[in-house]
Amino acid sequence: MRNTLIKVGVTGYFVSSEQNKNGWVKGVPGQQFSMFSYDFVESILSSKALPTLMPIVPKKFIKEQLRLIDALVLAGGEDVHPKYYETEHVNQEYKDTSFERDEYEIELIRQALDIGIPILFICRGMQLLNIVQNGTLYGDIASEISTKIKHLTVENRSKAVHDVVLKEDHFVSSLIGNTINVNSIHHQSIKHLGENLEIVGKSRDGIVEVITFKDREDIIAVQWHPEMMYQESGHAKSIFNWLIDKADANQKSKGGL
């Protein structure tokens, strides 16, 4: 039984003044915003923990941000800019990227890994973890890989669209199963695996869907969106419960009440 309320940090979008120049988001034209998916709020609350939103801050404050939380979720979002994983096209213009978010989350990941809190990486988050570990990405699955699976399916965010087959006798498969059915809302994916990472699950066309660290059981990275499947999916609930149980155990091991 948990003795304290676990606080789970969640990353989100940064909407710049240029993106909101006409006031299409909220507020007045030019006003900047941090935005977070409410699916995370509901999933974390349903798992008996408290969501703590992580807006982009200067890097010197990240250490203090991390002191406020017991676990971390790196959420999905924009494409990761190719300058972080290739050199061929770094000078091209990419509209669906966020320099501010990329820079902040890369440093956030590095510091969070160092302090040893449990982390769940989702979609873009998994891709950033791979980059932090010196891996690379496919910039666009549809143009770089031959597959019949439609990995970018946005019509129904909670609908399962393809299988993921996981490595047997692994802590992740013991948690969620050897074969699961997941939603899919991405067009980038892991190409070359980063250092000290392990591939635990793939879709049937070979796209990497689950990775972990070789020597840690408090980190899971998935390519799908369990927060969007939480209401219907047992494996989505298991992932969030795992995160919060790991945070609780970590807190108790440090002498927390």
Rank of each mutant, 00 (worst) to 15 (best):
M1S: 14
R2L: 04
L5T: 15
G12L: 01
Y13M: 11
F14L: 03
F14V: 10
N20E: 10
N20Q: 07
K21P: 04
N22G: 13
G23K: 06
W24E: 11
K26R: 13
G27N: 05
S34D: 11
Y38T: 15
D39S: 14
V41Y: 08
E42P: 03
I44E: 06
I44N: 05
L45M: 09
K48P: 02
A49W: 02
L50Q: 04
P55L: 11
I56Q: 03
V57N: 03
V57M: 14
I62M: 04
D70A: 09
L72E: 00
G76E: 01
G77W: 00
P82Y: 12
P82A: 15
P82M: 07
K83T: 05
K83N: 06
K83Y: 10
Y84Q: 12
Y85N: 02
H89I: 15
E93P: 04
Y94N: 02
Y94Q: 04
K95A: 13
S98M: 01
S98F: 02
F99S: 12
F99K: 13
F99R: 13
E100M: 09
R101L: 02
E103C: 09
Y104P: 00
A112M: 04
G116Q: 08
I117H: 00
P118A: 05
I122Y: 03
M126S: 02
Q127N: 02
N130L: 06
N130D: 05
Q133G: 07
N134E: 10
G135N: 03
G135S: 06
L137G: 04
G139A: 08
I145N: 03
S146Q: 12
K148V: 15
K150G: 07
K150M: 08
H151N: 08
E155N: 12
N156T: 10
N156D: 15
A160W: 01
A160H: 02
V161Y: 14
H162S: 10
H162Q: 03
L166M: 05
E168R: 15
V172C: 05
S173P: 01
I176R: 00
G177F: 02
N178C: 07
N181H: 14
V182N: 00
S184A: 12
H186R: 04
H186P: 02
Q188V: 10
I190H: 02
I199V: 15
G201D: 03
K202F: 13
S203R: 00
D205F: 13
G206T: 05
V208K: 00
V210M: 08
F213K: 00
F213Q: 03
K214W: 14
D215G: 08
R216V: 11
E217V: 13
E217F: 07
V222F: 06
W224T: 07
P226M: 11
M229D: 07
E232A: 11
S233G: 06
A236M: 07
A236T: 04
K237V: 14
S238Y: 03
D245R: 08
A247S: 06
A247E: 00
D248P: 01
K252N: 15
L257W: 09
